[in-house]
């Protein structure tokens, strides 16, 4: 594992912790898209199928379990927690996320390494992760006052993707085997989606004002 991969995993972990902290400390999930959280739960469940068959390292196993359980816990909180669920911005979180699931499934059935359940699930999870942030970005754009923790959550998620791109570039130049094009293209698309957000996050940080995305 190289330093970029590790930094990516840590910022990913940090984003989850920030989100859990926000929900736990404020008993509120305002500004958080349930649709994005459901998509992430689906991403992790379909990508980490290998938990059942292969053991790679304790690090991998623990991190995978953390990402699966935290995403399910967040979805549960937003849907069922007696206090938290009442703060969910349901009326603004209207992105039709099923279209993203359907599109990713079609892509995975068309473009995969081998036509096996695991390979198709893996490709599906990569495509879906690339676009899973869209409902969250749309909700951020609609929310007039984005609180700091929500902004930081999306910032760390974006940083995680950026570090993974650096990781793949590093691996491309240091390892013999060729990196695969599926995560390359999906990863670049995903990181590109954050570019706009990063710009406004930087502006709000520089000017020390609340984050607000233009409509």
């Amino acid at each position: 594992m190289n330093v970029f991969r590790f930094a990516g995993d840590m910022t990913h972990l940090f984003s989850v912790l920030v989100l859990l902290l926000k929900i736990y400390a404020t008993k509120s999930c305002s500004g958080i898209s349930l649709k994005t959280q459901e998509l992430y739960a689906l991403v992790f469940l379909t990508r980490y199928l290998d938990l059942l068959t292969d053991f790679i390292s304790l690090y991998n196993t623990v991190m995978k379990l953390v990402f699966i359980s935290s995403s399910l816990a967040i979805v549960w909180c937003m849907r069922a927690h007696p206090v938290v669920r009442r703060t969910y911005d349901k009326d603004q979180d209207t992105f039709r996320h099923y279209t993203l699931v359907a599109g990713s499934l079609v892509l995975a059935l068309l473009f995969h390494d081998r036509f096996t359940i695991r390979e198709v699930c893996w490709a599906f999870s990569i495509y879906l992760e690339a676009v899973a942030i869209l409902p969250q970005l749309v909700l951020l754009q609609r929310s007039r006052n984005v609180d700091n923790l929500t902004g930081q959550y999306v910032f760390f998620l974006g940083a995680y993707r950026a570090f993974y791109i650096l990781n793949w570039i590093y691996r491309y130049f240091t390892e013999q085997h060729f990196s695969r094009w599926i995560p390359w293209i999906a990863g670049l698309v995903q990181t590109g989606l954050y570019a706009d957000f990063f710009y406004y996050y930087y502006l709000s940080w520089k000017n020390n004002v609340k984050l607000q995305l233009p409509a």
Partner: peptide, 10 residues
């Protein structure tokens, strides 16, 4: 480890 494939990443 460097023998990990891209698919073993998180």
């Amino acid at each position: 480890t460097s023998s990990e494939s891209i698919k073993d990443e998180l």
